[in-house]
Design a protein around this nucleic acid. Structure first.
Lengths: 194, 194
DNA sequence: AGGTTAATCGAACGAATGTTCTGCTGTCAA
DNA sequence: TTGACAGCAGAACATTCGTTCGATTAACCT
C-alpha cells in the first residue's frame, strides 16, 4: 500500500471538530484541516470512513457521523503484563458513554448531587447522578426519595420498623420517614468531572 | 406582524431532524421539511433562529446547532418543583454526557479502574476513568502513570525527594518511582454504572 | 381606512459543493 | 528489481449552495 494508514488520526481530528461545532465541515475544509491539498483525497477518505462505519450520508447527501463515530476506546490494564506503552495496548473494546450510562433516556435524568451525605459511597458534592424515574426500588438501591417535600439521595434500607434511608457518612443520621416514603427514582449511574 | 410566530414549531422539526441524523440539512431541504417554497424564507428563518441563539454558523459557514438548540421545554420533563439542581444547569454547556466529559475525543480514552487503591477519592473498582492522553501533569492531578512497565492510577505529588504517586487508601503505600516517572495521561472524569 | 411590519414567494446570481478522471509517488510483496 | 496498489495532487465538471432583491400577503396599530 501507499502510506501507513493514517485514517485513525484523520478520524480523530474530525471527532475533535465535531465536538467543537456539532457539524462536519465541507471537503475543502476537511482537506485543509488534515493537510490534504486535493478534495479527491478527502473524497476517498470519506469513502473509507463510510465503509468502516464511522460516517454516513444523509438522505439529502450530507455527511453525518454515525454512532460508531462517538465510540471511545476502552482499555483494561487489568493484565499486569506491562506491554510496550504504544497507543493501542490493551484495547479491548469501544463504547459510547451515553449508551453505557443511559440505556433508557426517556425515563432518565441527571441530578446534581448536593452535600456530602453519600461520601462514603463514592458520591461527592457536585457529581451528577443518573437517575431512572420509577416508583419502585429494592433494598440496597441508592434512590432519590421525597421526604417531607424534600428530595434526598440515600440508600434504601429496611429494618423491623419499616423502610429507612441510609446516608453514607458517619456525620449523618439515618432518615426514618414518618409520613410514608415516596421514591422518585433509582440511581443507576454516576458522572464526575475533574 | 405577518403570521403568528411558528418559529418554535419549525425549530422542533429541525431538532427532530438533527436527532435522526446528527447534522442539519441544506436550506432547500429545510424548506421542503417545513413547507416553505422559497429558500429566502428559510434564510430569514435561519437569521431569526441565529439571533435567538438556537443555531450558529461555523467558521467555515456551515449551519450548526448551539447548546440552546437542545434545550427542552421544561414541560417536556415533568420536573417536580423543588428538585434541587435538576439536570440542566450542571451540564449547561453540554448536550450529552459524552460531550460533558470528553471535549477532546481524539486524545481521550476510557480506562477501567482495577483495585481499591483510590477508594478514598471516590474511585472504585470497576469504574471507568476518562483519561486525556498527555505526558505533562500537575501536582494534585490524578494521573495514569507507567511505573516499572505497569499502569497505575494515582494522585501525582511531589516532596523534597521528587515526584511520587499517592494512593487514596490507607492500606496502600505511596509509590516513589525509581527509574523515572512516565505519565500516560490525566484523569479528567469518572463514569460509574450501578 | 391607512400605515407598518413580519413572513413568505419567486427568480437570478456567483460561489462553493462533491464527483470523476488522469497521473505521480512511495510502500509492500514476490 | 519489478509489479501491484493505496494514498494523494490537480484539474474539469455539472450540480447545488446560500444570498439577494423586489413583490405579495396577512396580522397588528392608530
Amino acid at each position: 500500500m501507499g502510506n501507513p494508514n493514517r485514517d485513525h488520526e484523520y478520524l480523530g481530528k474530525l471527532q475533535d471538530y465535531y465536538a467543537d461545532y456539532r457539524s462536519l465541515p465541507s471537503y475543502a475544509v476537511i482537506g485543509e484541516m488534515l493537510g490534504m491539498a486535493s478534495k479527491s483525497a478527502v473524497s476517498a477518505l470519506v469513502k473509507r470512513l463510510t465503509l468502516a462505519g464511522y460516517v454516513e450520508t444523509t438522505p439529502d447527501r450530507r455527511l453525518a457521523p454515525t454512532k460508531r463515530f462517538f465510540e471511545r476506546d476502552l482499555a483494561d490494564f487489568n493484565v499486569p503484563a506491562g506491554l510496550p506503552a504504544a497507543a493501542n495496548d490493551a484495547m479491548s473494546e469501544a463504547l459510547t458513554v451515553d449508551e453505557y450510562l443511559i440505556p433508557r433516556p426517556s425515563s432518565s435524568m441527571l441530578i446534581k448531587v448536593r452535600g456530602d451525605s453519600m461520601m462514603d459511597a463514592g458520591i461527592y458534592d457536585g457529581d451528577l447522578a443518573v437517575v431512572e424515574k420509577r416508583h419502585g426500588a429494592n433494598v440496597g438501591d441508592i434512590v432519590v426519595a421525597i421526604v417531607d417535600g424534600e428530595y434526598t439521595l440515600k440508600e434504601l434500607a429496611r429494618d423491623k420498623q419499616g423502610y429507612l434511608l441510609l446516608p453514607h457518612n458517619p456525620a449523618f443520621e439515618p432518615i426514618r420517614p414518618q409520613e410514608g416514603l415516596e421514591i422518585f427514582g433509582v440511581m443507576v449511574g454516576l458522572v464526575r468531572k475533574y
